[in-house]
Design a protein around this nucleic acid. Structure first.
Lengths: 155, 155
DNA sequence: CTTCCGGAGTTCCTTGAAGAGACTCCGAGA
DNA sequence: TCTCGGAGTCTCTTCAAGGAACTCCGGAAG
């Protein structure tokens, strides 16, 4: 719905939501990431309506997180993650970690992630990109940045 | 909008979206995180409608990520993050990192984060919780987990 | 050459959520 | 008793999501 335009806000969270905040968009990204890349595959896998899928794909392509790639001499396309889109998968992995922890229930997580570097089934953890120590909600102070608006309450 | 119930899907991303996937929810969480905790403060800061703010707050309280805390003998409440909600801030921090990198524009990021442990202005990075090495989209294999549905295409 | 097929949309209608603003409720203080 | 201010509730309009039918188009089949 979201008639309010988050992209104009002076807030990196709102700007990120402007790209993938609409319903279905994260799930589309997930599918493309794991190899569900064609229109009718996405349709069948997600149970989304054709109209909404078209809109979301166009928006994600416009935003530069997906690219449309022909796979036939007929006009047939696959969708693939761009570098910008691949970095959004970080977001999906954190969602997975949270959902696994708080919403998996009795059955346990539906999917496991094996880390190439160590070969273990694992999950992501947030670290400071400077010192490498854990970095979570209570480990930071907020300071106004160069792009802060004059308005109160950015982020 | 999202009449489709993401919470029923066999997918931790969809289940997480069931909690904070609606428009405004991540921004409400951000505000509560940084200290904007009262109804009319949130209203003014976000520019959200009263009706939607009421709905979102109720949902977030029902889901156990926010708690309502009286701050007066009159029926006045503040909203605070629960432990479950504090862990959702990880998600916000990753959104910030992505938004800062790809959408901040000329002006630079609107807010900076100083890490307590090292004192530096920094951002989050994703690491494997087992070996500590970087863990991103291309560093993992997916395996079916114990909670996988019989259906194809979970995650 | 004509017909059929299948992937990828496009169009149309109905339902219901978001936005905006007015109204209500209630305890405290003047 | 009257007023005030925080925290909602109600109502109305607009526009997005869901669903289904329809279109377009190039290749294959006959």
């Amino acid at each position: 719905m979201q008639r309010t335009n988050f992209g104009e806000m002076s807030c990196s969270i709102a700007r990120t939501l402007d790209v993938i905040g609409e319903p279905w968009s994260p799930l589309i990204l997930r599918d493309v990431w794991v190899g569900v890349t064609r229109f009718d595959q996405l349709l069948a896998d997600l149970g989304i309506s054709r109209k909404v899928l078209t809109e979301r794909l166009n928006h994600l392509v416009d935003q530069g997180v997906l690219e449309r790639r022909p796979y036939d001499r007929r006009p047939r396309y696959e969708y693939h993650l761009t570098p910008k889109g691949i970095e959004l998968v970080d977001l999906l992995m954190v969602m997975v970690a949270w959902g696994d922890k708080w919403r998996a229930g009795e059955a346990g997580p539906p999917v496991l992630y094996r880390h190439h570097a160590c070969g273990e089934v694992s999950s992501v953890d947030l670290r400071c990109s400077r010192c490498g120590e854990p970095m979570h909600a209570n480990d930071v102070d907020l300071l106004p940045g160069p792009g802060a608006s004059v308005e109160p309450r950015p982020v």
